[in-house]
Design a binder for these strands. Structure first.
Lengths: 254, 254
DNA sequence: AAGCGCGTTACGATAGGCGTAACTTGAAAT
DNA sequence: ATTTCAAGTTACGCCTATCGTAACGCGCTT
């Protein structure tokens, strides 16, 4: 009866589908009714009703040619959200500070649905810099975002690590055993540096952000082109990020 | 039967209510279930189901004490939206350019639901500056946002002007006749300057952004403290804003 | 200890929303 | 020009998802 959620559903299905529609439009600008319906495996009339409802409220906007995009209400929601999500609100100025000092791009990432997700960023005024984007997802198993995994219970950890690890570059770790060993090392040293695991020629440094109970709720990160990043720079980044991490934890009231 | 929309409803009511819930949380951070239910005139179980559905998708987040805020998914939505709404995407760099040159706060405003709504902004790096906020609403009848009204069909215009005009300061126009005369003047000169109509000691300059057919789709605005704004500055702002307006129109493909 | 208000659960009644099917439109193909 | 196809839309009757009532547990105040 309830294919998606086999347990008793105390949620509103039509609303749930509608959120899927909204996220689908967000991911695929200028998508058409038929595509959305196909993507979600729903009928066209149903999706049409949903899109119309969303449109009436300005969450999506229909173009003259029948394609849908997000609307102005979505912008307002997002702006409100970034002042309401404590982690983001607090991290933003700190990310900027680190970014200015390092003169490189900084990010705040969390675990979301088995991936790492960028929820805040800062990019320095500099012609060549690492591009960051709020909402962009990356595997948890590649690059320095591994710190997000390193402090989880071993069981959960293994659950989060897929059978076959996605290979992004030739330096990406693809052996589960090696990865677990690496995670051990990260946990001991308290940070993670990766060289060209996500993109070639990119250095990435991450430090975990701890909650009061020692659990990891996020990671702060510096990303930089390898050619201008010496060992000494990496060390500097680590110090900056550790300071930042402590500040964020403190400001969250811990 | 259908109190809100007397005509045939081809929308999904539960989704519509759910959007109201979401917007309500956006407006009132740390709101409680009971409050939302009261605000919307709905029952608690209904709102609870909605909030749970929204929470599952990360659009809202429930705190330990039972209060609700927007969640990370809302941030992502908003970020995606600001790259998808043409007007905002195009206006942003232009607002920044004008803002840098004027060294004052700039805004992009549209008509939404009988009010003016800020959908993009730039604030200069300066200790004292006008505060702008995406999502903030202002009356259409006060301050230089009047330009948004000035080019509407007289019928629609009158419809948008409430019986009694809200008085924000002692300089606010509160007489309908005077307002209509003022709108005439604005239409002839192509811009609007207001002195202390919205806030005391604030100068506001707005220029309309035109669509291909000559209709006004938005207004670009400079806001500045009166004490440091000479007549010559206002003239400069007008020139800058007119350039900006043309650029935006052009980049929209008109 | 009693009272209040909050969040939550259970459940049966119902109307809201679903999918089927049919229609319109416009573009592509013959 | 005629046909074909698919996208978007509308209509409508059936059915189930969703609703509100009522009741419960819980914490805080009186």
């Amino acid at each position: 009866m309830d294919k998606r959620n086999p347990s008793k559903s105390n949620i509103v299905q039509s609303v749930d589908v509608c959120i899927e529609v909204l996220l689908n439009v967000a991911k695929n600008p200028d998508i058409r009714l038929t595509e959305v319906a196909q993507n979600l495996g729903e009928t066209k009339p149903r999706i049409l009703r949903m899109l119309r409802t969303l449109e009436r409220r300005g969450l999506v906007r229909k173009s003259g040619t029948g394609t849908y995009r997000l609307g102005t209400t979505a912008i307002i929601l997002g702006t409100a959200a970034s002042t309401q999500v404590d982690l983001v609100r607090i991290a933003n100025p700190i990310l900027e500070e680190v970014g200015q000092k390092a003169n490189e791009t900084t990010q705040l990432r969390i675990i979301d649905n088995g991936e790492s997700l960028c929820i805040a960023k800062f990019e320095p005024m500099r012609d060549l810099r690492v591009q960051a984007m709020i909402g962009r997802r990356r595997p948890l198993t590649a690059g320095s975002y591994k710190v997000l995994l390193a402090y989880l219970h071993p069981q959960v950890q293994l659950q989060m690590i897929p059978e076959t690890l996605p290979r992004l570059t030739k330096r990406t770790i693809t052996d589960r055993g090696k990865l677990v060993a690496e995670l051990d090392k990260i946990r001991r040293q308290g940070f993670c540096v990766s060289y060209g695991e996500v993109s070639d020629q990119l250095v990435s440094v991450s430090v975990p952000v701890l909650a009061f109970d020692g659990s990891v709720i996020a990671a702060v990160n510096v990303g930089a082109p390898a050619f201008r990043t010496q060992k000494s720079d990496v060390d500097r980044f680590i110090v900056l990020l550790k300071e930042a991490s402590s500040k964020i934890s403190a400001r969250l009231g811990w």
